[in-house]
Design a protein around this nucleic acid. Structure first.
Length: 243
DNA sequence: TAGGCCATCTGGTCCT
DNA sequence: AGGACCAGATGGCCTA
């Protein structure tokens, strides 16, 4: 539970807390500065509290007490105004910050949607989660780069790119779900990761690709839905650092 | 009902 | 000083 907004200068003794940036009202500090020191502090009544001309005795004391009470009331009202303004100022800044943060996250989500739109689609239109989108994009880029590399090596038969990457297929062959957690598979490095074996669509990255290495798709038993997306994304290369 | 995913709020930190 | 970025907290929704 987030801590509630703080207020300052809540104590009668606290007249130094910063609220001086709020224009148009008497701050606590100013309020305190204008008031004479308390009688208890000086040991004698402040000069301003001394009797007005024509007053003496008990009425003199009563008048001083009234003045002190009035000053306390004014100081209290000023403090309330100060705190209310400070609170509203903080509140408005917080609301603006929330708005910016919301907008920032919307932009981030829009970028993720744009990324999803350029990734190979699944037949059932399953929307990838955020983490799945990032993993899939990573794998997809890897597969495309690998495809280009193999094509540049002059894979026999021609049309290597078309054979390697059917348009409706995921870039990497799905594997049975890994028993290890994401954190384990992501945090242990590419080589040691259970994903490492699947990091390459080839059983051996150094060996030439065969059509079987990439031959999967809607006709492939491994290409079964709806389990594919999550299985694929849980078991395909996981090189994005996870912490 | 537990767990996953997500949106939002919030306070802290860094940068301009 | 204000904005961007980040991570933690929280609550809602959905699914197995």
């Amino acid at each position: 539970m987030p801590a509630p907004l703080e207020t300052t200068c809540v104590s009668d003794l606290d007249c130094s807390s910063g609220s001086g940036d709020l224009p148009g009202f008497l701050t606590d500090e100013e309020d305190c500065a204008r008031l004479p020191p308390p009688a208890s502090a000086s040991g004698s009544p402040a000069p301003a509290l001394r009797g007005a001309p024509g007053l003496s005795g008990a009425s003199d004391v009563a008048g001083a007490q009234d003045d002190e009470q009035e000053r306390r009331r004014r100081r209290g009202r000023a403090r309330v105004r100060s705190e209310a303004l400070l609170h509203s100022l903080r509140r408005s800044r917080r609301v603006k910050a929330n708005d910016r943060e919301r907008n920032r996250m919307h932009n981030l989500n829009a970028a993720l949607d744009a990324l999803r739109s350029v990734l190979p689609s699944f037949p059932d239109d399953t929307k990838l989660t955020k983490i799945e989108t990032l993993r899939f994009a990573y794998n997809y880029i890897w597969a495309l780069a690998e495809t280009l590399r193999l094509a540049d090596q002059g894979l026999p038969g021609g049309g290597a790119r078309e054979r390697l990457l059917p348009p409706q297929c995921a870039p990497c062959p799905p594997r049975p779900p890994s028993p290890t957690s994401d954190a384990e598979s992501w945090g242990s490095g590419a080589a040691a990761s259970p994903c490492a074996a699947a990091a390459s669509p080839l059983s051996d990255p150094s060996s030439p690709a065969t059509s079987e290495d990439f031959a999967y798709g809607p006709g492939d038993p491994l290409f079964s839905f709806p389990s594919l997306p999550k299985d694929l994304l849980h078991t395909t290369p996981c090189f994005i650092p996870y912490h």
